[in-house]
Design a protein around this nucleic acid. Sequence first.
DNA 1: AAGTGGTCTAGACCACTAT
DNA 2: TAGTGGTCTAGACCACTTT
Lengths: 253, 253
Amino acid sequence: MSAKRTKPRAIDRSAFEPAYMQLVHILSEQIASGLYRPGDKLPPESELRAQYSVSPMTVRRVINILIERGLVSTTQGKGTFVKPLDMGEAVFRLQELKEHWAHDEQATVQLLEASIRSADERVARKLSLSPGVPTIFIRRLVSHQAVPTLYHREYLIYDPRRPVVEAQLQITSLEGLFQGQSSEGLRRGDLQIEAVNLMEEEACLLQVQPGTAAFYLEHIFYDFKDRPVSWGWFICRADHFKLTTCIGAEAER
Amino acid sequence: MSAKRTKPRAIDRSAFEPAYMQLVHILSEQIASGLYRPGDKLPPESELRAQYSVSPMTVRRVINILIERGLVSTTQGKGTFVKPLDMGEAVFRLQELKEHWAHDEQATVQLLEASIRSADERVARKLSLSPGVPTIFIRRLVSHQAVPTLYHREYLIYDPRRPVVEAQLQITSLEGLFQGQSSEGLRRGDLQIEAVNLMEEEACLLQVQPGTAAFYLEHIFYDFKDRPVSWGWFICRADHFKLTTCIGAEAER
DNA sequence: AAGTGGTCTAGACCACTAT
DNA sequence: TAGTGGTCTAGACCACTTT
C-alpha cells in the first residue's frame, strides 16, 4: 500500500467542537468504516498524538470514551484493540422514554386515589415496616392524547415529620412523576422491569383486555439513612412502551 | 459551625486505587450521606484540588465521572450542583442478564431449525431485500437447568460470498449467541425490547400457557457498509428475565 | 474584575508486555 | 530493553456568570 490514507482527517482547532471530541469521531468513523476491524490493534497512543498533534492526556481521554462506548478495550503493555459486537454492551435508558412522551404530546396525570392503608405483609416487607402500620397509598393514571397508557401505584411511609405527602399529591406532570418522586428527601433507588399479564382492574383502567402483556416497572426509593421511603410500580401499556438502543460504532452521535 | 468536618478523608497515595477513583468515592459518599443535598453547590474545583492536594486535571476527571453517573451537573461560570433523584437517569444493561445466566448455571443452546426461506414482505422490508429472495432462517432454544427460557428466531441474508452461516450454526453457548452473533462481519446493531403475549408455538416451546406475558428482544445487525445482515428476536420467559438497576449515590460501586 | 467550569499542554513516572 | 497503556502534575488559556 503505497497510497496514503484515504482521509487523513485532521483536527480543526478553530472549530467549536473540542479536539478530544473531534478525535473521538474520527476514530469512531474509522472503526465504523471497517478500517480497523474487531480484533485489530489501534495505533499506539504515541502515534496518535503525533499524527493529530495533541497531548497525551487528550489521547487518553479519547480512548477512555471509546472504552465506555464499548468500541475498544485496552491491555497495559499490549495496546488498544477493537472489540467485536456484543449484545451485552447494550444499555437501555428510561430517559429516552421520558423524552419520547414529553415531546410528542402533552401527558395528563390524574390522581385516582390517595388514602391511608395498613401495611399488609408484602408492603411491610418492602418498606421495612411492621405489618399493620399505616402507609399512604396513591394511585395515578397517566394519559397521552386521552389514551390511558400508565397506571401507577405507590405506598409511602407515613411520617408526620416528613411531609412528603403534600409534595407527592401535587405532582401533575409526567416530568414530576419521574423526577420529583423524591421531593428532596431521597438519595437512592432500585428499579426493576418485568413483563406481566394485566389484571382485571389494570386492564380496565388502561382500556385493554385482561391478560394483555404489559411492562411492570417497580421502584423502591431510600432516604439518606438508607431507609425505604416508598415502594411502587408503573404498569405500562406495551403498545406505548418500547425500549430501544444501538450498539457498535455509529457514524454520528 | 466551628467544628471541622466530621471526616476530612484524605487521599492515600500509597493505595492501589488511583487518586481520582478515591476522590470519586469520597464525593459520592458525601452526597449519599446528605452532606450535600440535591440543589446544593459542591465546593469549587479550586477548593477541591487544594483540599485533596490533586491537580486540576484530576479534579476535572472526577467531576466528569460524577456527571456521567447522574449525581451532579455543572454550569460554566456558576458551579457544580447535586442533582435530585431522577428515574430518567436509570440505565438497564443486558450485560447483567448475561452474567446472571452465565454464572448461575450452564446454559444449553439447542438448534431447532436451519433452513432456507423466501423472504416474505415483512422480512424483505427489515433486511432491505426484494420479497421472494432466499434467506436463512434459524430457530434456537436456550435452556437453563433443563428449563427452556429463551426462544430465538433469526433471518440471515443469504450470500454465498459471506459464509456467515457456518459460523452461526456452530454457536453452542449463550455467550456466543450474545457476542459472536456477528462473527466479525458486523459493526452496528439496533435493539428493542417489548412486552408481548406468547403465541401457541412459542408458549409450547417455553412450556407455559399461551398468552403468558414475555419479553421480546428484537435485533437488527448491519455490516460495515450499513447493509442489514440479520434480523431476529428473542422471546424470553418473563419469570427468567428481569432487568434491574440502581440510581443515585451508592455507598460502594 | 473576580470566580468558576472546560480544554489543553508537555512533560514525568509507573506497570505491564514482548523480545 | 523497548514499546505501550495509565496516572498525575502544574501550569496556561478560554468562556461564562456574578458582582
